[in-house]
Design a protein around this nucleic acid. Structure first.
Lengths: 330, 330
DNA sequence: GAAATCGTTGCTCATATGAGCACCAGTGGC
DNA sequence: GCCACTGGTGCTCATATGAGCAACGATTTC
């Protein structure tokens, strides 16, 4: 009997029939040690597949790979849902993660957008006490577009703060201004400067990233035109983080535009000990890769498919050891 | 945390992360015993799914159920293949089973048809020594239809015998005759009678079953017209075994037709200690059920889907104990 | 209110299992 | 031919795990 077939028989008898390795050894005319090794080989060759089917399950092996490949402090990967509620699972996972985050942040910096709004919705009331939730990029002054509804910048921060019995500190400024001078002026204003100062002292950041295309909230909110975004893409933009557009290397694409953007800079996120990226969906794979490989986040919360894309693609700066993440079954 | 979620967490840490139950207990603030119970529950609730993916894998748990529900001596169930090669897997399994059959039959009775031909093809040369392979139902005289090719009745028996270095004994008679009198006459012929006598002494039988519709080999070979089959269906026929049509209860549908059919009767199969039914495909579920629940076979070789259909449907004579077939993982 | 019953919990103990190690057989270089 | 070497094999031993059991608490039943 071929070696592979032997593995199959052993696996059947062990996992399906509940026989002990010793019994299988007798049945297959070998020793129990050989059976043990056969089973081990069957497992990592993928002949035996062990899967945990549950919407709230996680993919610990992928998480480990992500941490190792990108030097992240933590990674949360939820299974790819059959339908399109990846967004829902991921934002719930992010809410769970935030609630379980220790030490509980006293000041939490957040961005805004569809994803953050979804996270806020799923947060358990009472997830923390006395947390000050600070907006880290502008976006409240322009009236929200019809589609945005209640999920706009201000209400996201307010909701998160409310559920923690804390206080929301909004950034009273547009996301992007028309002139760099105006931006400088508004940032020097006491109110805005104060908020930004506070934001920089945040003990944790929670943000998502946008795709550089017409679907961006920045376009939807009217800060940018579709043409603007097209040009950014020409320059290599893959998406935006807190309103600032980056290329695949995580670098600011258009310094001039960046100089008109209000909010904490990427350096703050890079230096923070806890900056959590929440990101889901196939369209966001390129941005996710840019963020994660340029060290913009220290924690990622994402879906299985994105995680696989990030780990399988070798086009990232493979500086960290890529140790075998062999899964093990007792 | 809900109980189910606790199971999920424990399963993740155990199966994905390779942690010990003790460690998980510490992590989840419980005892290792509770973790063990959580894992057990997760397994039989199907949250943890352990699957063996291999074309030659078997479904031991289903086999056990089949044996118990129908009082079979043995059952072989191969996984449902993604594509349409269920036929191929099942016939290979049947060939394997035949080769592994102990005691090695000295006289093997076989039927003929597409399935048996496929089994013969997959049999390993040298699977046995000195086996006499006897045809148990007629079918060599009419020239085979264009489609049947080399897989006709005679060549199947010859091939099986050849691969065992044995001898094929063909039944020199049509499958179905036009008049009962002719049938009686031919059966009393010394040659035919001798073969039938030998067939009755077979130590093992290997056969398949046909569906009662136009696709039947009996129609294809010209023994019956489509209209004949329609009428049989009217009378409750679900399919044929060795050329004899049965209803869902396994009873002969049309005694007059049966009296014109040459070959060993169903009583011989029922009384044989080893009569192996090889059957695959959704269209054959009804016949399979009829054969299996009426005791026409003592061993079944089939695909997962058919096995599930047989076990799940409660319309069979549930005389045998249906003990829990709980699968177990150490 | 008392009793009975059921499911849960933490335990003891026997056992199944994996890690680590010495050893052997085949294999290829010299 | 000789010798290092690799890959597999059977072993010992520490450990992880499940079966079984007694105690407990909750819920139902009278």
């Amino acid at each position: 009997m071929s070696d592979e077939l032997l593995m199959v028989r052993a696996a059947e008898l062990y996992y399906e029939d509940g026989k002990t390795q010793d019994e299988i050894g007798a049945l297959l005319r070998t020793t129990r040690w050989k059976v043990g090794r056969l089973l081990a080989k069957a497992r990592d060759r993928g002949i035996v597949r062990i899967e945990i089917v549950h919407p709230r399950a996680r993919r610990l092996s992928l998480e480990r790979l992500l941490r190792e490949q990108y030097g992240l402090a933590d990674a949360i990967v939820v299974p790819a849902a059959d339908d399109a509620d990846v967004q829902a699972s991921v934002s719930r996972a992010a809410a769970d993660y935030l609630a379980a985050l220790r030490p509980i942040p006293r000041v939490l910096g957040i961005s805004w957008g569809r994803t953050l709004s979804a996270v806020a919705d799923r947060l358990t009331p009472g997830w923390a006490n006395e947390v000050r939730v600070v907006q880290i990029n502008g976006g409240i002054s322009l009236s929200s577009a019809p589609g945005a509804g209640a999920g706009s910048a201000a209400s996201t921060a307010a909701l998160i703060a409310h559920k923690a019995g804390g206080q929301a500190i909004l950034l009273p400024s547009p996301a992007i201004l028309e002139h760099a001078a105006t931006k400088a002026a508004i940032e020097s204003d006491r109110t805005v400067a104060g908020v930004l100062e506070l934001a920089k002292t945040a003990t944790a950041f929670l943000f998502s990233a946008g795709v550089a295309d017409g679907s961006s909230v920045l376009v939807e909110s009217g800060y940018l035109s579709a043409a603007d975004v097209d040009e950014l893409v020409q320059q290599g933009a893959v998406g935006d983080v807190v309103g600032r557009f980056i290329n695949a290397e995580g670098e600011i694409v258009d310094p001039a535009l960046d100089a008109r953007t209000v909010g904490v800079g990427h350096d703050v996120l890079r230096e923070a000990s806890t900056s959590v990226l929440v990101i889901a969906g196939r369209s966001k794979h390129p941005v996710a890769r840019a963020v994660v490989s340029s060290g913009l986040c220290s924690v990622i919360v994402t879906d299985e498919e994105t995680a696989r894309a990030l780990t399988q693609d070798s086009a990232h700066g493979a500086s960290h050891g890529t140790e075998q993440g062999a899964s093990h079954v007792a």
